[in-house]
Design a protein around this nucleic acid. Structure first.
Length: 273
DNA sequence: CTGTTAACCTGAGTGC
DNA sequence: TGCACTCAGGTTAACA
C-alpha cells in the first residue's frame, strides 16, 4: 500500500502525537508478520519508555525508544493508527502500544507483508537498511548518481527505479508517474538512459513525491494516515490506474503492460522513447 | 554479478 | 450463492 509519500505522511502525523507519551504496555498479537516479531524484547524494552522520535528511512519508520530502535514497515496493506482512547481490537490488528495517557499506536495489516523489528544497534546498520539506496530528497540522489548507477544495466528503467537499492521510496505508483512526467518510456533499458534523461527523471521523482506528500499521499483503496484520513494525490495521477483512458496531456489512450510482474501504465505518445 | 520469477497473505472484484 | 480466478501500494529468496 504505502510508498514513500504515504509513509512520510504517517511519520509527520505521528511525531507530535507520540512525543512525551510514556508507554504503558505492549501487545504482540501474533507470532510473525513478514518476519517474527521480537515479542520478548519489545515487552521487556518498551514499557516505561518514550518514543523519542519518529524517523523514516525509505519506507521504514524508525522509532528510537530507550536503548534501542523499533523498526516498522507497512508492507502492502499495513495501516498504523493513533487512537485517542481505548478502541476494541478488530481483525488483523497485530501490534499495539498503549500509552499512559490512554491513547494507542496500533498496526493493522491484513496481508501481513509488513514488519515490526527491534534493534539495539544503529538502525542504519540493520540488515534490511544497510544496503538501501539514497533518499530521493537528498543531494546524493543526483542525475550523475543515477547515470553512473544505471550503466550496463539491462533492466527496464521502471524496474530499475523501483529497486530500493537504487533509490528508496518509488514504488509502482510513483515510478510510473515520474516516468510520465519525465516523458520516458518505462520499457527503456536503464543502461540506455542519457544524462539528460537522468536530469529529467531525478527532477520528476522529487517533484511527484513532494507533490504527493503535500496531498497527504495516495489512497487507492485503503491507505489511511495516523488519524484514519485518506490522502488525495490519486486525483493527480496521470497514468497509474488510468489504462484505457485518455492522456490528460495529449488525449492518446493510456496503455498498460506488465513489467517485472507489476502493472505499468504509460502514455504511448508522451512516452515514446 | 545480473536478471527473472515465485513466494509470502488476505480480500475485493469479476465471470460463469 | 458459490466457486474459480485475477489482481493489489512491497520486498526477499531462489534460481538460471
Amino acid at each position: 500500500m504505502p510508498e514513500l509519500p504515504e509513509v512520510e505522511t504517517i511519520r509527520r502525523g505521528l511525531a507530535p502525537l507520540l512525543s512525551q507519551q510514556e508507554i504503558l504496555s505492549v501487545a504482540v498479537r501474533r507470532k510473525d508478520l513478514r518476519w517474527p516479531m521480537p515479542k520478548s524484547e519489545l515487552l521487556q524494552a518498551l514499557p516505561g519508555q518514550v518514543i523519542r522520535e519518529v524517523n523514516r528511512r525509505g519506507k521504514y519508520l524508525l522509532m528510537p525508544i530507550g536503548e534501542g530502535c523499533m523498526i516498522i514497515h507497512l508492507g502492502m496493506s499495513g495501516v498504523l493508527r493513533h487512537l485517542a482512547k481505548d478502541v476494541p481490537f478488530i481483525k488483523h490488528d497485530h501490534f499495539d502500544i498503549a500509552f499512559k495517557n490512554g491513547s494507542h499506536l496500533r498496526l493493522n495489516d491484513p496481508r501481513r507483508f509488513g514488519a515490526v523489528l527491534w534493534t539495539t544497534e544503529d538502525p542504519g546498520k540493520h540488515k534490511l537498511l544497510a544496503s538501501l539506496g539514497p533518499e530521493p530528497f537528498t543531494e546524493a540522489f543526483s542525475p550523475e548518481y543515477l547515470f553512473k548507477r544505471s550503466r550496463g544495466r539491462r533492466v527496464a528503467i521502471k524496474n530499475f527505479l523501483m529497486d530500493s537499492h537504487v533509490v528508496v521510496g518509488a514504488g509502482n505508483i510513483y515510478s510510473a508517474e515520474s516516468l510520465f512526467l519525465a516523458k520516458i518510456n518505462p520499457l527503456r533499458n536503464a543502461g540506455d538512459i542519457t544524462r539528460l534523461d537522468c536530469q529529467r527523471l531525478v527532477a520528476a521523482i522529487k517533484n511527484r513525491l513532494t507533490a504527493s506528500i503535500e496531498q497527504g499521499g495516495t489512497t487507492l483503496k485503503d491507505f489511511r494516515n495516523e488519524d484514519g484520513k485518506p490522502g488525495y494525490f490519486q486525483q493527480s495521477l496521470n497514468v497509474y490506474g488510468r489504462a484505457g483512458e485518455a492522456c490528460l496531456v495529449c488525449a492518446a489512450t493510456i496503455e498498460q503492460i506488465r513489467l517485472g510482474g507489476r502493472a505499468s501504465a504509460f502514455c504511448p505518445k508522451c512516452q515514446k522513447s
